[in-house]
């Protein structure tokens, strides 16, 4: 658990960050909360000759809720999210999910940006961002660009972010209706055995809109459009839930690990989704 030697950079502004990134390309990585990157470096599984600490760069953290649009700076910690009253009002699913990430000590350091940008399929925020249909704002040498969370993830640790780009913020429209983030894990601090993010809108007795995303059940987060569609236009009765679960199971591709064999993971995913739908519908 001793990392290889690396150069430590601590720029004061984004221009400084980008300068190091442009100079060193894929030999440089930015450091946010460090909970994924630093263990990987200590295990010598990540080779990072140039580490760029973002903590002195102004303007990367903070939450704004403005006219139904939520924007969360990349360096905003999970602890900040949990404690933000306006966000809890606008998008309570963010608070519910953040409370299920690791433990308070980790949440004081862990950031939204690190969680979504690292591309770790075990992280909770990527699936949640897909569920919310969030937009990621990236900055690079050529300026800012936006990419949808649903288009961002390519494979485990592989994303649409270029080596010389930095995630600035995530933004999404405050959801309406019912919500639930349901997660099964072996213990505090563990990645999900299966997790589901569900947003449901209700019009009378009918589901008018649904968004469903699953975590740690493939090498990327899985936004299951088909699962959502299975609920829209229904009263979210047993048959509709069965259809949604079946659709979700068609979209995930879990692997066997210490959390259990594939068959169990599929079963757990189904159970977790059923519970998330029930809770979200109850709140809708």
């Amino acid at each position: 658990m001793i990392p290889a030697a690396f150069e430590y950079h601590r720029p004061k502004d984004m221009a400084g960050v980008l300068a190091v990134l442009v100079e060193h390309g894929d030999e440089a990585r930015v450091l946010a909360g460090g909970h994924s990157l630093i263990p990987m470096m200590k295990l010598r599984m990540a080779d990072v000759p140039h580490l760029i600490d973002l903590q002195d760069v102004d303007g990367l953290s903070g939450i704004t809720v403005d006219g139904g649009r939520v924007r969360i700076g990349a360096m905003t910690t999970q602890s900040d999210i949990i404690g933000h009253a306006a966000l809890a009002e606008a998008a309570p699913i963010m608070r519910e999910a953040s409370l299920q990430i690791a433990d308070p000590q980790v949440r004081y350091m862990g950031t939204v940006g690190g969680n979504v940008a690292n591309g770790d399929p075990g992280n909770d925020m990527p699936g949640l961002m897909q569920c919310l249909d969030a937009t990621f704002i990236l900055v690079g040498p050529d300026g800012e660009r936006e990419v949808q969370a649903r288009d961002f993830y390519e494979a485990a640790y592989m994303t649409d972010r270029e080596d010389d780009e930095v995630l600035l913020a995530v933004a999404f429209d405050a959801p309406s209706g019912g919500y639930a983030y349901e997660k099964q894990k072996r213990k505090i601090g563990d990645y999900a055995t299966a997790a589901a993010a569900v947003l449901l809108e209700k019009n009378g007795d009918t589901c008018s809109a649904a968004s469903i995303a699953m975590t740690n059940l493939s090498d990327t987060p899985v936004w299951s459009e088909a699962a959502g569609n299975a609920l829209v236009g229904t009263s979210v009765d047993a048959a509709a839930i069965d259809a949604a679960v079946a659709a979700m199971l068609g979209d995930i591709d879990p692997t066997q690990d210490n959390r259990g064999p594939i068959e169990f993971k599929r079963h757990a995913a189904a159970m977790i989704l059923r519970r998330a739908i029930a809770r979200a519908w109850d709140r809708a």
Binding site: T193, P261, F264, H267, A268
Partner: peptide, 8 residues
């Protein structure tokens, strides 16, 4: 007796 073994 972890989750998956109990499930099994």
């Amino acid at each position: 007796h972890d989750h998956w073994r109990i499930w099994q």
